[in-house]
């Protein structure tokens, strides 16, 4: 016990990653168990087509959950992502159907419009909740309504349709049976993982989630980091809007109702603490898979809609309870 600075030479990034790796292993096991269960009880589950389906179906939630992870890590929450996605989709839908553009320009315009809309909404969330130190729960609840209203206003509550063919192509393109839109989401996960683990920015987000005051007194602008986290979340809502449009080839102002709750569930099931400071985006990836596999598998085994909803709720509660014990034993 009196030994000073016990030898220790490995460039070990942080015990964080070790701990979160263990934690992710736990979530991974749960996912594996689900997959095993459905493989045994339905003949269609483990087929190439169905795997493609699952990947397509979790993509939007995964994209939203990646951004949500940033916000929850700093101890915030963003309830507006579903509405912001719809707003971004409608704005992009208006842009893509503007007359006088070739397909390539129209698509580029739509992508820019969707991401800018998302970024703007996220930034507003961040600036207001960080500047006045207000609970993000209520600010983003306001934004939930603003963005939904804006989506309906801009679209006049009409479904926008007839997008360029190339856009639709992108939405349904596959590489070896893996949807390209899913690869986009996976790329976002990897970027987020890198940012959170290997950059000063990521380190300080964890720091803010754990002890905002200590980070502030160490001379960092907590304000801008918070704004950045919410902006990232808005950005992913914009990306989700593009995925939505490419996949369904329409923009609907009533898209994404309740999506925020699914995204939050994916993050929490993935082991990120709602009070911030602890968690990982790899966990979020696994959490999104658990939700997606459950939604898919329960339909395949023919469970009724209502039972399906109940079981999804049970899984969320079980995940949080398990996480409580995981955190308790990890800290001993």
């Amino acid at each position: 016990m009196t030994t000073q600075a016990l030898s220790e030479t490995m460039p070990n990034p942080s015990r964080f990653s070790v701990r979160s790796a263990l934690q992710n292993a736990g979530i991974g096991l749960a996912l594996l168990a689900l997959i095993l269960f459905f493989s045994v009880f339905t003949e269609h589950f483990l087929t190439p087509n169905n795997i493609t389906n699952i990947l397509t179906q979790i993509t939007i939630n995964l994209v939203l959950a990646v951004g949500m992870t940033f916000v929850i890590l700093i101890g915030g929450i963003d309830l507006s992502v579903g509405s912001v996605m719809a707003f971004a989709a409608v704005v992009a839908g208006k842009a893509i159907t503007l007359p006088g553009f070739g397909p390539a320009e129209a698509i580029a315009l739509a992508v820019v419009a969707a991401t800018l809309t998302g970024v703007a909404c996220g930034m507003i969330n961040g600036v207001i909740s960080a500047y006045w130190a207000l609970p993000s729960f209520i600010i983003t609840l306001g934004m939930l309504n603003i963005a939904r209203g804006a989506a309906l206003q801009v679209s006049d509550a009409q479904t926008i349709y007839s997008f360029p063919y190339a856009f639709e192509e992108f939405g349904s393109a596959m590489i070896y049976g893996v949807p390209v839109v899913f690869l986009v989401a996976l790329f976002l996960v990897l970027v987020a993982w890198f940012v959170l683990n290997f950059t000063v920015f990521g380190r300080l987000l964890y720091g803010i989630g754990n002890n905002e005051e200590a980070v502030r007194l160490a001379g960092h602008s907590v304000y801008w980091y918070k704004v950045a986290a919410f902006t990232i979340c808005g950005f992913t809502a914009g990306i989700a809007a593009i995925v939505y449009m490419a996949r369904l080839n329409i923009s609907s102002p009533i898209a994404g109702i309740g999506f925020e709750l699914n995204a939050i569930a994916a993050v929490i099931i993935g082991g990120t603490s709602l009070s911030g400071g602890r968690g990982s985006v790899i966990g979020t990836l696994l959490g999104a898979f658990i939700i997606g596999v459950l939604a898919n598998g329960l339909i395949l085994i023919g469970l009724s809609d209502f039972m399906r909803q109940m079981i999804t709720g049970v899984v969320i509660i079980v995940a949080v309870v398990l996480d409580y014990y995981r955190a308790k034993y990890a800290s001993k």
Binding site: H44, N49, N53, I60, S252, N296
Partner: peptide, 20 residues
């Protein structure tokens, strides 16, 4: 099954029905 009147959910729910 229900898809709550919504395009994206109908897309997901129906894909899964088609698999089954």
């Amino acid at each position: 099954r229900t898809a709550h009147w919504e395009t994206e959910e109908a897309n997901t729910v129906f894909s899964n029905m088609l698999t089954a």
